[in-house]
Design a protein around this nucleic acid. Structure first.
Length: 331
DNA sequence: AAGGAACACAACCGCGCTACA
DNA sequence: CTGTAGCGCGGTTGTGTTCCT
C-alpha cells in the first residue's frame, strides 16, 4: 500500500532544512514547476525524498503563503470552521488563503484549544464544558469518539441536507433577471466566505465547497434542465461586477485541471484577506436564462421570503442532495 | 545564571485513496 | 483484477525558543 518508496532508501537527509536546500528547491520549482514530486529531489540536487520536498514547498516555500501571526478574525473563522468540519485541516486551510493546514493545525493544538477551554467551551464538541460533562455522565456506554471521527455538522448535513439552510443562515431568496436566482447569506463570518452560489432551473442554493466543490466543468445531469456547470453554460461574476450590469469576470485558469484549493488561491476573489472574500455569483448565460423563465421554479415564488419553511427545506434538500451526489461522483 | 517546563512550529510517519501498468 | 507508485491528509514527534522559578 502507498508507502513512499523513498522512505526505504537510506542516505537521504531528514530534519530541518538548510537555507541552501531551500534555495535549491525554490529555484527548481520556480524554473520548472514541481511536476512529479518523486523526481524533484534528483532534479533539484537534493538529498531528500520527494515527500519531504513537497511538504517543505507547501508549508514553507510557496510564494503565496501569508506570514505572521493569525488575526483574531482568522482565529474566529477557524473556530467556526472547525465546528463544521472537525479536524479537516486541509479543508479549513482552503478557506484561509495563504495559510497551510499544518499551520492551522498547530495553531489549533497549541493556542485555540486552550483559549476555548478557558472560555468554558469544549474544543472537540464546541459545546459548553458543563454540558459535555453532563453528557459523559449520562451516556456512560457511549464514549464520544475522537474528534477526527466524530460526526461534524458537515457529516450531519450530508445525511440531512434539509438542515443546510438553517445552519448557514440563508436569509433570502432573490431573483434577478441578470443574476438569475441567488440566495443571500447572512452576515456571519461563515456565510461571508461561502464560496459559490448556484442556480439551475429548479434549484438554488449556496454550496459549501466541500460538498459541491465548484468545478464548473462538471455537468449536472439528473434533471436535464440545464447544463449549468458545463464550461459553456455558465459564467462568473464577482465582487467587481455590479448586480445590475453584472459584468462578468472569467477566471483565466483551466478550471478542469485545478483543484478548489488551488483555484481559491488563484482567483481574485479569494486571494485577499478572508474579510474581503465574497461569494462568487454564478450567472447563467442569456440562453439559459431564457430557459429558466419557462421552468416552474419553486423558489421564484419565495422571493424575499425566508427559506426556512419545512417545504422549502425539503425541496431544497432533495435538489441539493442530488447535486452533491452528482458532484461527488464527478470529483 | 541555570535548568526545567511550557510553548510554538517544522517535519516526519503512517494510512487511505487513486491512477496506472 | 491486482500490485505498485504517488499524492494528500491527519496525527504525532522532534527541536528550538521563551518563560518561570
Amino acid at each position: 500500500m502507498g508507502r513512499h518508496s523513498c522512505c526505504y532508501k537510506q542516505k537521504l537527509r531528514k530534519g530541518l532544512w538548510s537555507p541552501e536546500e531551500d534555495e535549491k528547491l525554490l529555484n527548481h520549482i520556480t524554473n520548472h514547476g514541481h511536476g512529479c514530486w518523486s523526481s524533484v529531489p534528483k532534479l533539484a540536487g537534493l538529498q531528500r525524498c520527494g515527500k519531504s520536498c513537497r511538504l517543505r514547498w507547501i508549508n514553507y516555500l510557496r510564494p503565496d503563503l501569508k506570514r505572521g501571526a493569525f488575526s483574531p478574525e482568522e482565529e474566529n473563522l477557524i473556530v467556526e470552521l472547525h465546528a463544521v468540519l472537525g479536524n479537516r485541516w486541509s479543508q479549513i486551510a482552503a478557506r484561509l488563503p495563504g495559510r497551510t493546514d499544518n499551520e492551522i493545525k498547530n495553531l489549533w493544538n497549541s493556542n485555540i484549544k486552550k483559549k476555548l477551554r478557558q472560555r468554558g467551551i469544549d474544543p472537540n464538541t464546541h459545546k459548553p464544558i458543563s454540558e459535555v460533562d453532563k453528557d459523559k455522565t449520562t451516556t456512560t456506554s457511549n464514549k464520544s469518539p475522537p474528534s477526527s471521527s466524530s460526526p461534524t455538522n458537515q457529516d450531519f448535513f450530508l445525511e440531512r441536507p434539509s438542515d443546510f439552510s438553517e445552519y448557514f443562515g440563508l436569509q433570502k431568496l432573490n431573483f434577478n433577471s441578470n443574476l438569475g436566482l441567488s440566495v443571500t447569506p447572512d452576515s456571519s463570518p461563515l456565510c461571508s466566505m461561502i464560496p459559490a452560489q448556484f442556480s439551475t432551473g429548479n434549484m438554488v442554493g449556496s454550496v459549501f465547497q466541500t460538498q459541491v466543490c465548484v468545478k464548473p466543468s462538471v455537468t449536472l445531469a439528473p434533471d436535464n434542465t440545464s447544463n449549468f456547470f458545463d464550461s459553456g453554460g455558465f459564467s462568473w461574476s464577482g465582487p467587481n461586477s455590479s448586480s445590475s450590469s453584472s459584468s462578468l469576470v472569467k477566471p483565466n485558469h483551466n478550471l478542469e485541471e485545478m483543484k478548489w484549493s488551488e483555484y481559491s488561491m488563484n482567483t481574485p476573489f479569494f486571494n485577499g484577506s478572508t474579510q474581503n472574500s465574497q461569494p462568487i455569483y454564478i450567472k447563467s448565460e442569456a440562453e439559459y436564462l431564457a430557459n429558466v423563465s419557462n421552468i416552474t421554479d419553486p423558489w421564484s415564488q419565495s422571493q424575499n421570503e425566508n427559506l426556512n419553511t419545512p417545504e422549502d427545506s425539503d425541496v431544497f434538500s432533495k435538489d441539493l442532495q442530488r447535486m452533491a451526489v452528482s458532484f461527488g461522483q464527478s470529483l
